[in-house]
């Protein structure tokens, strides 16, 4: 693709994708690094929310509004996963 062919919108979407990708990398760094389980849960939640943003940007790039359904599902799974992990962290404390 020639650089002159890129429209304003495409450039903005690509910039947005680069920034969200960088943010996802940073969140992944925190997920690997820890140090505690709640830190990892927060990082996982952040990755879920960033994935919604990536899907939204990709929607515009490919002109495919159908992908918004996938964004709904990702948001739902991220929320449920976070709540389940929060309960797990609390329960694990009580068992000890």
């Amino acid at each position: 693709m020639n650089l002159d062919d890129i429209t304003l919108l495409e450039g903005a979407v690509m910039l947005g994708l680069v920034m969200t990708g960088l943010a996802m990398f940073l969140a992944f760094f925190r997920l690997v690094r820890g140090p505690s389980l709640p830190d990892r849960v927060v990082a996982l939640d952040l990755i879920g929310i960033i994935a919604v943003g990536v899907i939204a940007a990709y929607d515009i790039l490919t002109e495919q509004p159908v992908l918004l359904d996938a964004a709904t599902v990702v948001a739902l799974v991220a929320f449920l996963g976070t709540v389940a992990f929060a309960r797990y962290v609390e329960r694990r404390q009580q068992d000890e």
Partner: peptide, 23 residues
């Protein structure tokens, strides 16, 4: 297109801020 571009870039910037914040 301009409004969309601005919203996308602002949204991406906020996400990047969140990533920097979590690290």
């Amino acid at each position: 297109d301009v409004v969309t571009a601005v919203l996308i870039v602002v949204g991406g910037a906020f996400m990047l801020l969140a990533g920097v914040g979590i690290v």
